[in-house]
Each structure stands twice: as structure tokens, then as C-alpha cells.
Design a protein around this nucleic acid. Sequence first.
DNA 1: CTGAAAGCGCTTACAG
DNA 2: CTGAAAGCGCTTACAG
Lengths: 324, 324
Amino acid sequence: MKITISEIAAQAQVSTGTVSRVINGHSTVAKATRVKVLEVMEQLGYAPDPVARELSMRSKYAIGMWVGYGENRLSPYFNVVWRALVREMQERAIQFIELPADLSTWRRPLNAVLVFNTSHVEERMRFLAERDLPAVLIGHFPGVSCVAPDDIGGGRLAAQTLLGLGHRRLLHLSVLGEAQWHADRADGFVQGLKAFGMEQISFVQVHGESSVLGGYRLMRDAWLAGQRPTGVFCATDEMAVGAYGALQDLGVRVPEAMSVMGFDGLAAELQPGLASVAQDIPQIAHESVSLVLEAIDKKPPRQVLVPVYLHEGGSIALAPGGEH
Amino acid sequence: MKITISEIAAQAQVSTGTVSRVINGHSTVAKATRVKVLEVMEQLGYAPDPVARELSMRSKYAIGMWVGYGENRLSPYFNVVWRALVREMQERAIQFIELPADLSTWRRPLNAVLVFNTSHVEERMRFLAERDLPAVLIGHFPGVSCVAPDDIGGGRLAAQTLLGLGHRRLLHLSVLGEAQWHADRADGFVQGLKAFGMEQISFVQVHGESSVLGGYRLMRDAWLAGQRPTGVFCATDEMAVGAYGALQDLGVRVPEAMSVMGFDGLAAELQPGLASVAQDIPQIAHESVSLVLEAIDKKPPRQVLVPVYLHEGGSIALAPGGEH
DNA sequence: CTGAAAGCGCTTACAG
DNA sequence: CTGAAAGCGCTTACAG
């Protein structure tokens, strides 16, 4: 049936306490026994039971996750982050509670709140501050602890990548509205172009919705308006999927005639082959929870930027005409 | 200080066992003591700790969830079902494990497997059968326990709904490939039309991808090919979102000129106002887990069909011209 | 470094 | 009907 810590202890001929110590990486375990225990665990495919773990470790903390409503609640990105967050909390044996949109009706005790994927950020942060509830935001907001992917660096990375392949006519599909993340991605992209020398480059930026349909329409309309870039950088992978579709409908071949890049790193699931600036989502989850713990301890707020990296893919190639 | 069951027991002058019994509604508690205990609980605002509860109630079963890969892993539908499943397992205090796509590398003990959202169903079911692993499928497969939404009934419901509004020129956006669910939805729809009398109806069915882009293209192409339905039934809500977009781009007003219906019931998040044949997803999760438990007990396989219902929305209206 | 033991908060045969 | 006790799977002072 289920294999437990005592099974491991028996097989490794140590006490359960010792097994527990190696699980938790306590340094006070002899190297030989540690190795032995790890071996047995590996062999039996053991994984500690998070529920039992929580019951016995039980940080006194209960932290709430306050998430937004609306269509993006079902977005691929949201779901990936949400799952990473849940897993992180489980691993750290922290009790988490998904909060309702309207917090004012909430009664159960709460040690901190993690705010994610929500609109009205300012209003919400004020609400929490007034109640002295430590808060951490996944995103940007002055004065509170925040964690976010390096959107600017990601934009720059996209620019460098496309420029490196010889592209000189570039299009950026960006997003309407005030959110920081897409502004940063666009800024980073432009920074990358500027570093290279703008005078040699033609660059156009258009704005639409951050969805498949949004990307489709932007790409199609830009093309029909006479834009002829060789490289397109999309603010999200979903938009890139749409752009892909539009190019297909227009008979423009990817990557031969046009290189397409996305942002988020969901390509493997969303559109195999799509090159993308990937976020390190497990790391974002990890940092978020660390900041929450710091906030509970009244440590001063910090802002963490989690690095991004290039997710390679066949959707980008040397610019046509071999300008390079 | 957190208040626990022993606190209640002390105040009510009974044992913790008795308190537990009233918490769980066991009938073997004298009315007077029950009342007394409830009073104390109420007074102290006591709520049982779910973690402790799970640890002690939990069936010793570990059940695996075997899900498919590919883009639909991030689809809204998948995510909604996934979360319902997780919650159901938690409530029943069953340990669940997300299985890797390649089960042959799996070592940890498993009492049963819930198969969901996967391709190669036949192959996978055979794999499990060979290993004597009880299996339950969300979907259709002969000889094993299955649970699925009533796709046929849902198709019929869509037909009745649109016919009831006076629509007589109908289009169905269906899906390419061999899966049962969209065949059933289409069949149900046609059944509904036939029951009404096909000779008074013009009906066209087209096939594409089950995505936003798929719906967009089907709708646009049908229109450009000269189709002029007044009612469109989409095999999924995602396709309906795409169809919506196409109609917008074509300048066709919804619902004045065209009624649009989806299927799945994700409209509230995906496209507010979209009318849809809604699946009862919590119920599907519930039945799945029940069947898994039965399968572990060697009970004979059963096939469960979960009813669907109409999710109302402003995307459907009386047919133009008031044919009704 | 490591074992024995108590404890996290709850449930449930087992007696009576 | 109800209490005493063992148990769910793990952690962590406390000794040694």
C-alpha cells in the first residue's frame, strides 16, 4: 500500500527521526547514513506525505491567495502559476486559502495575503494595508513586496535574438491598457533595438487584446495595412498563437518568411515549436512565498525580479535574404 | 490560541470522541449531549481542522490521475475539470497523484487510475488492464467504468433551444477527428432537428479544430462561402469565442442577426453572455471518484452519463424576421 | 550524530 | 450512548 517514513526507516535500519532529518536536510546527519537513507527512498520511490507534514510542522500561518476574476482566470498562464503556487505552499507546509473576490466578508484569521492576477491593484493593496495585513503582490506596486518576471530583460532578450538572426524590419504586438508588464516588455524590446542602433531598423508597434483572437487580428490587420516585417515579437504566447494563425491564413510561411516569438514560455503546450521568452514560474512561486514569510516577520518589503530565458523553437530563423 | 476538539470536549464535559461524533453527525449521540456540544462549539466559534481531519480519515488509497499532454492540457475545460477533481479527492480524503505520461517508469504503489483528457485511450486502457490496475475513464470506452457528460442530450437541447426561438437555418461547428464527444454532440443536434421535422430546416455542418482559432476560421469561411444561418451551435465554448470574433470581424451582429450557442458552460469566464450547454462538472468529478472507489472494490464497471443543462445568455434571441 | 517519545488535531473500532 | 486508546504520517525537543 502506501509507503511511509517507517518503511524507509526499517529498510535503512535507522529511526524514523533520522529519516525525517534527512528529508528536511538537517545537517546533523552522518554522511553515510544520509546516503543510505536517500538510496532507500529513491529505490522505493518514497515521497513524504504533505498532509502529515503540515499537521506536524504547522507553521501557525494561514495565507490567503487573492486572485482576480474574469476571463483571464482560465488563461493558460494563470493556471500554470496557480498550480506552481499551490505546490509551493504544500511543500512548505503552509496552509493556504483561496479568498473570495470580496474580502470584507471574510472572517477566518489570516496572516498574510498573496495577491495575484487581479485588477484594481491599488485599491486592493490599500484595503490590505488599512487592515495591517501583510501583502505580497505578483506584479508591480510601489511600497509593497512584489515579485515579477524580468519583463524588461525579456523584451531585450527578444530584440537581441531577432537582431542576431539578421532581422531588421520588426513588429511588436503589444497590449492595450495600463498594466505594467506589457509596457515593460515593449520598453525592453525597444531598448534592445536602440542598443543596436535604431537607424538601421524599421520598427512598428501595435496594440490589441492579450488573447489568441487579439494576436490574430493584430497580425492580420498589420499585414493588410501593408506592414512587411520579417520578425514579430508578441507580448504573450497566446497572442503568438493567434499571430501564427493569421500568418497561416495569409499564406505567409513561418519561419521562412517571418519569424515569430512569444512571451511566457508556454509554447510546449500551446504551440509546439514556438520560440518564446520563458518565465521561470516555479521560481516565481518560490520567491512569492518567501516574501510572504518575510512580510509576516515584519521584514521590510522587497522587490524581486525573476530572470527569464529563451525557450528555443523552430518559429524563428535567419531573416530572409540573408541580411546577416 | 487555536481552539481544538479537546477544548470543546472539556467545556462540554464529554470526551473528544463524543465531540467528534457530533461533528460527523453520527446518530449514536444522545440528543441532550449533542445539543450541549453544539452549543459550546457555536459559542467558541469552533471549526474542525481540515488537515487533521484528512490525516485521520483518509482512505489508504492512492489514486493516480493520468492526463494527456498537448495543448489541451492548458485548455479552460481541462483546468476546470482538474480543479473539480482535486477538490473532490480532498473532500473524500483520498490521496491523489498526478501521473507522468509514460506510466511504465512509475514505481510508487497505486490502487487505481483515473484517466482523463488523453489520446490513445485504447492503448492506455489496455496497458492498465494488463497490470490489473482498476481504471476509470472520463470519456467513453467499452468494458471499463466511464463517466461523461450527456453529449447527445446536450446536442438535442441545443437544437430544441434554437428551434424554439424560431431559427430554421442552422449551422453546426463541429470538430475533426475520431473522438466520441463531438460526434455525440453533433448526433444529438441532428436528432433534435429530426424530431422537429427536417424538411422545414436547412442545416449545414462543418468541421475544424476545437479551439478559438478553429471556431474563428469555420465561422468566417462558412460565411464567406455564402452560408447564411441565423443560428450557430458550436461544439465547444472555445469555438464559440472564435465564432463570436469572426462575426464581429464580418460585421454580423449577435444576437440580432445571428444566435450563437456553445457547449461546456464556461461562458461566464470565457465570454460573458454566451449561451451554452453547460456540463455539471462538480458532478462529473464526484461520479468519477465514486466509480474509482467501486473499481477498487472489484465491483463491476458502470457507465455514468451526467446530465447537462442550459446556461442562458444574451447570445441567443428570436430568429430575425420573427419566423416563430 | 541518533534513538525514543511526545505531539500536531482529529477519527473510529473496541469495550462497556 | 460514551469513554479510553490507538492510529493517521510526520517533526522535533530531549537525552545520550
